[in-house]
Each structure stands twice: as structure tokens, then as C-alpha cells.
Amino acid sequence: MDFVIYQGSGRSLKKTLLHSSTSGIIRHDAQHRIQVQALDKVSIQLEHGDRLGLIGGNGAGKTTLLRTIAGVYEPTAGRIRVEGKITPLFDLSIGFDGDASGYDNIRMRAAYLGVSREEIERKMDDIAAFTELGGHLDLPVRTYSAGMMLRLAFGAATAIDAEILLMDEWIAVSDAQFLEKAERRAAEFAGRASILVVASHVESVLRRLCNKVLWLENGHVVKIGPVDEVLTEYRQNQHLDAAPANRDLEPTVGKLTM
């Protein structure tokens, strides 16, 4: 599989919709609107087997890059070319509806991601077994506890086979009992993918999963290369900036919103 991003993409947002002003390059255009160039001169090429980790401070452009690869944002300049089926996993609970049953939510989610009806019905037993929710799957998900919600979202998200998997933060659960099983499943899920791109602040995750790391800062590529090399330099840079060294926190669940 050939997954190519030939040329970087710039992205400009109008003032009214500005939501990431902490970083990126902010400037004014002729009509005094604020523009943010979220990515500039990012040129990478990924191929079958590649596992790319994205690091960088807040607003460095990690999420924008992921969304550009996902085809959500079409680049304002430059080119992106993707071959293969993309499975984005930015938000575990995407498309969840509190009033629908667990089963229905799994089906809806699959429909959004372009997974066929037959495929998801085939995977249903596997998801049900993994979540250990049993009869609860027939109940509306608003009756679920936070932990149960997470099991459902996690189980549904990791059941499908992804060709190109995009993740914004590594998914994990905090439920101790469930942790090992979930970690194993998540690793298998990522392992099945032909290409993985994961943005994470957690070095242990990047070291375990990736064979390359891309370091972004203010929408520019600072360095791309082997995991150890980039991470070492990144950390040194962080110390120079006197940034708090809390990068190695255990993974926590980034996103679960209803």
C-alpha cells in the first residue's frame, strides 16, 4: 500500500472559527481576518508497515495533520494522496446516541465509518464478548455507567479491521480489571493495520508502537526519523524550555464525551 503525502498543507481559519490560537502561525489577511497556518511544508510519505508517531506541543498541528490525512480537511495548498481505507479514531464515542441501545450504537458507528452491515453483524458477538456487558447491550446506553460506556466504545472501535489507522492519543482504559485485556486488544487492533499514525504525548506508547516519529512544532516539521533519535532530541529540547517533565504519565483516556 502506498500512502503518500506529497506536499505540506496549509490551513487557514477565519477569525470567527479560530479555536487553536495557542500555536500555529497567526496572521491577518487583506480583509483583516485572522488566519492560522496550522501546517506548513509538511512533506511525508508512508508505506505499508509504517507506524508513525506524532509528537509536539499543544497546537503543534498533530490533530490537523491527522484530520488532513483522514480527508476531513482538504489542504488549502499542497497535495495529499491516500490509498486504502482509512479508519479514524479521534473520538471513541463518535456518533453515540444515549437513547439507542448498545447494539444500535455499534451499528450506527459502523455505518458512519463505512463498515458494511454484514461485517459488523459478523463482529457483533466478538464485541459483545469483549465488552462483557451481556444483557445491558439491549438497554439504552444512557443507563450505562461511565466504565460500561467506555467498554462499549472501546470494544466497538477496536473490532473492525483498519487499513490505515489514525489515532489521536492512544486509547486505553483506566479500569484496572479491564486494563490488560484492553491493552492487548488495542495492540492487536493497531497491529492489524497496514499503516498506523498515532499522536501521543506518552513516550512509552510511541516506543512500543512506532517505527518512526514526526516531531511537529507550530505546524512545521522539526524532525522525522527513528523513534529513539527523535524522542531523545525532543526531550532535550523540552528540558531546555524548562517544560515540566510530566511526559511519561500513564496513558489516560483522552476523549470520551457524550
Binding site: 480527508g71 482538504e74 495529499i80 494522496r81 490509498e83 481505507k85
Partner: peptide, 10 residues
Amino acid sequence: MTLLFDSADR
């Protein structure tokens, strides 16, 4: 392999 998209092909 199916081409999903190419932002500059059309």
C-alpha cells in the same frame, strides 16, 4: 489497492 482520495487529481 483502492485509491481513497487524492486532493489534486481533479
